[in-house]
């Protein structure tokens, strides 16, 4: 009797030790992720550069030492020479000019293609799908220089064309993921649609799309974040300031000089807000999108 009671107690104690240990490790990592974000956030609101770069670091500045100077500088101090417009706002505008067609048209192309691969049986299916899969294993970087030379030959460098048009054809990863999801939609539903006289277009728009919205949203979110954060392509293709995307604009004016730290950090905070916001809102779809494309590979 006493022996089992002692065993039970020991079990409870060890479980308590285990969960305390777990919490300690998890919290340590949580802090390692949170502190850097807190540091850039609080620095962006510090009123003076001297306070921002003081040692030891001021974790909780007095209220009177806080200000909007970083953000005001960010929007007013850096202007596009030719137009006089704020460089950051121009960058935001350009980023969305690129991202909107890429995400919408690219998603549509991926969806249509995935529908064909999942629900229509045709002769070239295996070959075509194999080619797509193979392209995912290629190191994309080989394409960087020849693509640039080709677009330069076509007078398309320093335009948004190389950033937008190739992506509008859809992506292999998108097709791969969506096909997986579409395959899970029962054929009986499609049959029922056909009995009602639906063709491919209506089956696609009225059955497949509505039933797959979470998957499509997951891919769209991933696509938006990748496009918004892209740096290498805009860096090589865009030359004139008024065409810079946000990432390039930020790097250009704060990459070299750290003269006013609150401004630089305000830029970083501003660049982080959209993707973190999208992630937090669409977290469920986002995580599903990542895990599905990873686990089924």
């Amino acid at each position: 009797m006493t022996e089992t009671a002692a065993k039970k107690r020991r079990g409870r104690v060890s479980r308590a030790v285990k969960s305390t240990f777990s919490y300690a490790v998890l919290a340590a990592f949580a802090l390692a992720f949170l502190i850097p974000f807190y540091i850039i956030l609080i620095t962006s609101f510090k009123a003076t550069n001297r306070l921002a770069t003081s040692t030891p670091f001021v974790w909780l500045p007095a209220f009177r030492d806080l200000g909007w100077d970083g953000y005001r500088n960010l929007f007013t101090e850096y202007t596009v020479t030719k137009t006089g417009a704020s460089m950051v706002l121009t960058g935001v505008k350009n980023t969305f000019l690129v991202a909107v067609p890429v995400v919408f048209v690219g998603m549509l192309a991926s969806c249509v293609s995935a529908y064909a691969f999942a629900k229509i049986d045709f002769r070239l299916k295996k070959t075509m799908f194999g080619a797509l899969l193979f392209s995912m294993m290629l190191p994309g970087i080989v394409l960087l220089i020849p693509s640039f030379v080709i677009f330069d030959f076509l007078y398309l460098t320093d335009t948004f064309f190389p950033l937008i048009v190739p992506a509008m054809f859809g992506s292999a990863a998108g097709v791969f993921f969506l096909r997986q999801f579409f395959s899970g939609i029962p054929d009986e539903l499609l049959d029922a649609g056909r009995i009602d006289g639906m063709g491919h277009a209506r089956i696609f728009l009225q059955i497949m799309i509505p039933l797959s919205l979470p998957a499509i949203l997951a891919q769209a979110v991933l696509g938006f974040i990748a496009c918004y954060n892209d740096y290498l392509n805009p860096l090589i293709y865009l030359r004139q300031e008024e065409k810079y995307t946000l990432q390039i604009a930020l790097q250009m004016f704060s990459g070299g000089n750290m003269t006013h730290l609150p401004t630089v950090m305000a830029g970083a905070v501003l660049a982080l807000i959209p993707t973190i916001a999208v992630y937090l809102v669409a977290q469920k779809y986002f995580v599903a999108g990542i895990t599905m494309s990873g686990l089924k590979a």
Partner: peptide
């Protein structure tokens, strides 16, 4: 189906041809 399927499936492959195979 051979025609429609291949046609609908083709956009990413056309992209692959133009913007991957050619530069490659």
């Amino acid at each position: 189906n051979n025609v429609i399927g291949a046609l609908l499936a083709s956009p990413p492959l056309i992209g692959l041809l133009l913007f991957t195979a050619v530069p490659l």
